[in-house]
Amino acid sequence: MSRLLKGKVLGIGLVMPSFLTLLVLVAYPVMMSVRTSLQNRAGEWSWDNYRYIFTEPLISQNIRHTMFVTIISCFFVLIIAYGIALYLRFSTRFFSKLINKLYLIPMFIPGVIAVYGFINFYRNNGWVARLIGTDNMLPIIYHVRGLIMINVWFNIPFTTMLLLSALQGIPNSIIEGARDVGATKWQLFIRFILPLSYKTMLVAITFLFMGIIGSFTAPFLIDRNAPQMLGVSMQQHFSVFNEIGQSSSLAVFMFLLSSAVGCFYIWSNMKHSKKELS
């Protein structure tokens, strides 16, 4: 009995250093933010800031824009990353090996530099325009298209990595077995590969959603001035309009959206581990 207790104390003791860091550096500031968002300029408790972000037409436009960009980006990232992961898992060709060596690199390129390279590459007198002729060039920089493209650029490596590891976890024996009994490629995909990897897709969606919805650098440098992503709008309310309460309420609003997705992630992980125990 006392050994069990000792184990419990040891466990909590080992977790404490990082958990306390988390508490001081993240949880406490988050709580401060929530508090600030619930106070008006005179420092009294009120819903003013939330009333503002839900009634101001510019903000509701920004919210719609943010949701649009986030969902579309998640969709494209997921589809493309899944395609790349499938290719890397089931092809042993030369190109597949080469892509396997290369695809992780964008994840580690500093954000500012990627955006900078993107702007120089795609702006209307950039390299692409020079190569294909300015007249054939769609506006990409300072357009929502460019923002979605850079989101895809940033997020594909991480998502591909998660999905690839899930696909590599599917034993070859399952696939060969299904082929032996005459399953077509399509059936194989729908019946085996998709169900065995969809859990990881949920994980990927969670991190994609959280990463894109609160992003700042890319939308700040690439998107148009209006409508804005909420990350940019929040920063502007803070440093240009000096409205700390309003910017906090925007942050808390984004946090609630992310939390909803995060709870989904936690729930699906818990369900998974219960299954493994039984």
């Binding site: 958990f19 993240v26 949880a27 500031p29 401060m32 933010s33 990350g231 942050a251 984004m254 946090f255």
Partner: peptide, 20 residues
Amino acid sequence: SFLLTNAFPKMGLYVSIAVL
């Protein structure tokens, strides 16, 4: 709980930390 570092928008977190 470590998911919290990703769930709260970074810019909002930094601003709040700056106040602290």
